[in-house]
Simulated assay, not measured.
Amino acid sequence: MSPVALDRRGLWIAVGAFVIWGLMPLYWHLLRAVPSLQIVLHRAIWCAVLVAAWLTLREGRGWFRAVVAQPRLAGMLALSGTLIAFNWGLYVWAVNAGHVIEASLGYFINPLLNVLIGVAFLHERLSRPQWAAVALAGCGVAWLTARYGSFPWIALCLAGSFALYGVIRKFAAVEAVRGLGVENMFMFVPALALLAWIELGGDGGFFSLRWGGWTDVLLVLGGALTAIPLIFFAYAVRRVPLSVVGLLQYLGPTLQLLLGVFFFGEPFGADRAAGFAFIWAGLAIFALDGVRAARRRIVAQQA
C-alpha cells in the first residue's frame, strides 16, 4: 500500500463519527416503545428530508440530477444506501432487543473484515501479523458460536454490511453530504410508502401522538443524528487511509460494549469474555502492526 499523508482534519472528523456511533444505543433506548422497523423508516425519511433541504439551500435543486446523470455513480450510491439502511435496521433492532454487546462485537470484527475485503477485492497483501490477527478473530467467533450454541449472525451481518458500505463510499467519487443525500433519496419513497401503509393499518402512532409528542420529536431528530456520523465517515474515509480508519473504529464498539455491560446490564460472563479476548488479541496485533507500518512509511518519506 502506498504511503498516504494523514489529513488531521479528516482524522478528528473520523473520531467524532465513531464516538457518536458508540453512544447511539442511549438514543435508541429512548425510543424503545416504538417498533424497530418504524424507527428505521423514520430515520430514512427525516434524514432524506433534512439533508435534501440543506443541499437545496446550499447548491440549488440540481444536486440530485447531477449525480443520477452518472449511472455508475448512481448505482453505487443506491447500493450503499441499501446497505446502510439494512445496517441501521439491524442495529436498532439489536439495541432494543437486548443485544447491545453482540452489536458491539460486529463493529469490533469490522476492521478485520475490511482487511479481508482489501485482500479479496483490492489485491492488497497481508503481513504475517495481520494474518495472525484475522486467525485469532476467527477463533473468537468460533468460540462464541460453540459456547452459546448459535452463530453470531447479528455481529457478522453488521460487520459485513458496514464494511461493504465503507468500500463503496471510498470509491464513489462524490462529496460526502451530496452522496448521503442521494443515498437517502433512493430510500425515501420505499420508506415513506411502507410507513404510510403501517400508519393506515393502525399499527403506527406518529400522527396520533400514540407514543407522546416527545417521542415523535426524537424520531424526527433521529434523522439528523444519524446523518451526522455518516457525513463525517464519508468525509473522513476519502481523506484518511483505511488502516487508520480501521484503528479508529475500535472507539465505537468499545463505548457500545461498556454501555451494554454497565448501562443495559447485559450478561458478560467468563465464556463470553474469553471469546471477546481472542478478538481483542487479534485487534491488538493488527493495531500494533499498523503503527509499525506507519512509522516505517514516515521514515522512508524522510529518508
Rank of each mutant, 00 (worst) to 15 (best):
residue 248 L to I: 04
residue 275 G to P: 03
residue 193 A to I: 02
residue 222 G to I: 03
residue 153 W to H: 11
residue 249 Q to E: 11
residue 176 A to F: 06
residue 191 A to H: 13
residue 207 F to D: 07
residue 267 P to K: 14
residue 160 G to V: 12
residue 253 P to N: 08
residue 271 D to C: 07
residue 201 G to P: 02
residue 258 L to W: 01
residue 261 V to D: 05
residue 261 V to H: 03
residue 240 V to W: 01
residue 199 E to Y: 01
residue 228 I to R: 11
residue 177 V to H: 02
residue 173 A to K: 08
residue 190 P to W: 11
residue 175 E to K: 00
residue 218 L to R: 11
residue 230 L to P: 07
residue 250 Y to M: 02
residue 224 A to E: 14
residue 181 G to D: 13
residue 154 I to L: 08
residue 167 V to S: 14
residue 236 A to M: 10
residue 224 A to R: 02
residue 270 A to V: 07
residue 184 N to Q: 02
residue 277 A to F: 10
residue 180 L to F: 01
residue 250 Y to N: 12
residue 172 A to L: 05
residue 267 P to F: 03
residue 233 F to V: 08
residue 264 F to K: 07
residue 170 K to M: 03
residue 232 F to G: 09
residue 177 V to Q: 06
residue 192 L to H: 13
residue 272 R to W: 10
residue 213 G to M: 00
residue 212 G to I: 13
residue 186 F to Y: 14
residue 165 Y to M: 14
residue 162 F to D: 13
residue 274 A to Q: 14
residue 248 L to P: 05
residue 224 A to V: 05
residue 175 E to N: 02
residue 225 L to W: 07
residue 160 G to T: 13
residue 160 G to R: 05
residue 235 Y to I: 01
residue 160 G to A: 06
residue 207 F to P: 13
residue 155 A to Y: 03
residue 225 L to S: 04
residue 176 A to E: 03
residue 277 A to L: 00
residue 187 M to L: 05
residue 256 Q to H: 13
residue 283 L to S: 02
residue 250 Y to A: 11
residue 160 G to E: 09
residue 183 E to H: 10
residue 263 F to H: 06
residue 154 I to T: 13
residue 283 L to G: 07
residue 160 G to F: 07
residue 257 L to G: 01
residue 213 G to I: 15
residue 163 A to G: 09
residue 173 A to H: 11
residue 209 L to G: 02
